[in-house]
Design a protein around this nucleic acid. Structure first.
Lengths: 166, 166
DNA sequence: GAGCATTACTTGATATAACAACTAATCTTC
DNA sequence: GAAGATTAGTTGTTATATCAAGTAATGCTC
């Protein structure tokens, strides 16, 4: 099979894309560790719970929403539970199911951290882009996700965090 | 300080961006592990060396080009050296400096893996985008890197891999 | 309704990542 | 040219990620 190499333009774009993929999560992660002792992944686990009804989700649903595997989530949930940010209980109707619920302390952590995190996202991404580029990025990410996540698992019903009313 | 929350459009874009940041590296990593038993990071270390003069770079320069820390690179280099893909030597002019050089086996690995990796990149990214979107992505990644990497360390003099002549 | 398959996790072992501490060589300054 | 500072890497420790295996509850089939 003859390889379809990237042309100069594509290569240039890809080199930059690799840099963004490396730097952006690293900087967000570093910021969250510093201000809240949470990994980027930890934060999204808490954030997803904070947006869910009753601040709780079953583990498998939470795994899908954080694009994680169940084993990974299970380990993380254990640590967050030890820190008192999350509480797990067995569902009464199906005792195989574990419900993860954000504790009050977990909620407080999200409330305390979210503004700084959003500010960071704004500083690193949206402030750097023109409104046209934001719109372009919408189309690009949509196209990429059609391939990366054809079943749309990551873009599950998402609602704006209820943090506004603070 | 009142938080400047993300508006609906920004939030929608960001949710997708988070998904892309999570899924794209994960899928590239998974592919490389499968076909070459290399992490995404391992592969880029080898790739950077393959493009360097004499297939070698000093560790600190390699760390910059892979956006890595020296400790991280040092561990990875040790593993790659054990596998016979890289060889490290002390520079004669400055004996603090370690030069990492791609071995013949390392070169062969890159040569064998690069086409599949490029194919993967094409399948996951470029085939999913229109030419206009690729052009837009060029501008967007450029703008983001101005913030993420203001000194342009990641976009160090890059030249097309010499793999074409195979 | 007993046996097997499936689902929903958890646990344990191994690999990789991140941070701090350390070593050795070179440079600087007096 | 000796003492301290800086540079370039390495090593060790602890945390996190990944994969395989295990467990327990439920569903399915005959």
């Amino acid at each position: 099979m003859t390889t379809r190499w990237l042309d100069d333009r594509e290569l240039q774009v890809w080199v930059r894309m690799v840099a963004v993929l490396e730097l952006l999560p690293a900087q967000l992660d570093s910021h969250l560790r510093r201000v809240a002792d949470l990994t980027y992944f930890d934060y999204y686990v808490l954030a997803m719970l904070s947006e869910a009804p009753d601040r709780s989700l079953r583990m498998s649903e939470l795994a899908v929403r954080t694009n994680s595997t169940l084993p990974r989530l299970s380990h993380v949930a254990r640590r967050l539970e030890i820190r008192g940010l999350v509480h797990r209980t067995t569902a009464s109707d199906d005792r195989r199911v574990t419900m993860a619920r954000l504790t009050d302390a977990g909620w407080d952590t999200v409330v305390a951290t979210a503004p700084e995190h959003v500010e960071q996202v704004r500083a690193l991404v949206f402030d750097a882009l023109t409104p046209e580029q934001v719109e372009q990025l919408r189309g690009i990410t949509e196209a990429l996700l059609d391939v990366l996540d054809p079943d749309g698992l990551m873009s599950t019903p998402y609602q704006r965090p209820a943090l506004d009313d603070l």
